[in-house]
């Protein structure tokens, strides 16, 4: 379902060239929970950015559900991000001046779903990630880190993406809350049949996932 072939990303800084992603190949089945482990600077975020079309590869191929995104024009990439990818970030990245509910509604607004319908789905999703209904209208600043990450997960799920990319989703949370978020991601992946690729530092999390990749200097090693 997700197929990557000899993917490379180079950054030029001055005279030096950094091979942030250096010939990555992988194949992942639909609905799997995949962990990526690696040291700081090993290329984890860069790899996720390429998979989520936030950035363009220098060379190589990414194919998702038979579509080759490395060949798509920019306009298509925007709808690819909107409809087929869900992002979860380490620092939650919710829009600060609107409510949790409205944050979850944004991706659906972008696809033109009618307001009543997206409101209803946003509410359902927030309940699905176990956010109390009395907190749905709060702004992100009035939610705890764990709660903000739940909202972010609900937002990522909004358009029923094929693939969720999570860059250290528990990096800012304490161990216990982090574990809850991980379990939630895993549970939802199964329910919604979404593939999840999560960057993590936590060996425990990695152990409980379907596939574990180690990344070092932009190169991937399957465990």
């Amino acid at each position: 379902m997700l197929k990557v072939e000899n993917l490379k990303k180079q950054f030029k800084s001055g005279d030096t060239i950094i091979n942030a992603v250096d010939g990555v190949s992988l194949e992942i089945e639909e609905g799997s929970f995949v962990s990526i482990i690696g040291k700081s600077g090993s290329g984890k975020s860069t790899l996720l950015a390429l998979l989520g079309a936030l950035d363009k590869a220098t060379s190589g191929k990414i194919e998702i559900g038979g579509k080759e995104i490395t060949k798509m024009p920019d306009r298509k990439l925007i709808s690819y991000r909107r409809e087929e990818i869900g992002f979860v970030f380490q620092n939650y990245n919710l829009i600060p001046n609107i409510s949790a509910l409205e944050n979850v509604m944004i991706p659906m607004e972008l696809t033109g779903m009618p307001k009543a319908k997206r409101k209803e789905r946003a509410r359902d999703l927030l309940l699905e990630v176990d956010l109390d209904e009395n907190k749905h209208l709060r702004k992100p600043s009035r939610l705890s880190g764990g709660e903000q990450q739940r909202v972010a997960i609900a937002r990522a799920l909004a358009n029923k993406p094929k693939l969720i990319l999570a860059d250290e989703p528990t990096g800012n949370l304490d161990t216990e809350t982090g574990k809850m978020i991980d379990d939630l991601l895993k549970k939802l992946a199964k329910i919604e049949k979404t593939t999840i690729i999560a960057v993590t530092h936590d060996q425990d999390v990695a152990k409980r996932s379907d596939i574990v990749f180690h990344i070092k200097d932009g190169k991937l090693v399957k465990e």
């Binding site: 989520g52 925007i78 991000r81 992002f87 990245n93 600060p96 972008l110 937002r155």
Partner: peptide
């Protein structure tokens, strides 16, 4: 900076330049 982050997030979740 806050607005810049917001713009990045909107782009990442599939909003177009025109829309933002």
């Amino acid at each position: 900076r806050e607005r810049r982050k917001e713009i990045g997030v909107l782009k990442a979740i599939g909003s177009s330049n025109i829309k933002i």
